[in-house]
Design a protein around this nucleic acid. Sequence first.
DNA 1: GAAATAATCCCCCAAAAGAGTGATTTAAGG
DNA 2: CCTTAAATCACTCTTTTGGGGGATTATTTC
Lengths: 213, 213
Amino acid sequence: MQPFRILIVDDHAHAREAIREILEEHTDFVIVGEGKNGEEAIKLTEELMPDIILMDIQMPVMDGLEATKRIKLKFPYVKIVMITVSDDITDLFDALKKGAQGYLLKNIQPEAWSEHLRAFALDEVPMSKEIAFQILKEFPQNKTKTIKKTPLSTREMEVLQLVAKGFSNREISESLFISEHTVKSHLKNILSKLHLENRVQLTSYAFQQGLLN
Amino acid sequence: MQPFRILIVDDHAHAREAIREILEEHTDFVIVGEGKNGEEAIKLTEELMPDIILMDIQMPVMDGLEATKRIKLKFPYVKIVMITVSDDITDLFDALKKGAQGYLLKNIQPEAWSEHLRAFALDEVPMSKEIAFQILKEFPQNKTKTIKKTPLSTREMEVLQLVAKGFSNREISESLFISEHTVKSHLKNILSKLHLENRVQLTSYAFQQGLLN
DNA sequence: GAAATAATCCCCCAAAAGAGTGATTTAAGG
DNA sequence: CCTTAAATCACTCTTTTGGGGGATTATTTC
């Protein structure tokens, strides 16, 4: 079998070096390029068409979330795996939303990376539950609390329903007998709670979660 | 049983008179008000809270479609029935999309109206298939051709997929390697073909029709 | 009684969306 | 050959959206 072609994107040279060392122990991975930020990631992906991109989340110029989103839009078949030491695990969920296949934590059992990467590359797992569990259980309690559920309030749900039906903020405000400012405020909070960017994504989300009617 | 409280909205006085005559033959209908346009319809609905609104489509100031949409947004339980002599039957489907319960044609068997209205009021039919058929069969062939299916083209479907994922026009244009102008043009055509107003409604539609993935 | 949350409203501002026009090129069908 | 449809791009203009600040009440929770 052809080795998996891997692109590494991280702003720290020493981090890239560490990753390279880990992967070079295995003959079924070949590192085809390295980038320092999101912009380079996009350019290098176009040039090299890697099988897998290992991408850091925090980077200057363009961060890994934005880069993941854009690369996935243009090249849906490229697998992207986030690498991070993030202390805010919600970033990782955001990454999955933007199309990343999975994530690996720099400081947690890098010796097992190759195994997980192979699983990602072979599409064996969209996001392996075992890996997720493995990672989550490593997190101290106070960290995982950052993924606390912030469910939508009653009013926010009402707004959501009307947004998903395609009504404008103005129309919603008239329907609920409140000002348009308030509607925008609710919507802002909803998008923020759900880590979404716009009302279309909210509508998709609502359909997929069965939140409507 | 209480008689059904009916509001008539039509810009022609003689049309309102004709409707009044038809309905007054039946004791289970009482006409509580009359309006001449969409704005009046909204005002009168707030004041009178009728069970059923009989509304013309073509009216000055604000037409029946817009009025239907707004009334339904504020008062979802009011039944709205469109009355029209429209030669473009697509208007009627638009009316149903905006929340109308059904429609009646001025020039076709008004003697059967009361029966149909009773059905609408009692929620026996969201839009009775028999009535729809009855009306459709009265239409000459060349008229019904105006409801011709205009399916989306391949490219339009591609645009739809990306819109429903919450991407902006700019992002879509970069993904498809075309200009943003072209994306807007496609989107405009899509919305027009499907009689929708914005990308959120398109997203809802796509989900409900199972057009995605 | 303090702290947190929900719901309401306000301002500013840049970007995006949508509606109305238009044009050109290519491909497909009769 | 003519017509139609699809796909592309363009310009203008207004409205809408979404992000960034805030603030005030009232209620609930600890």
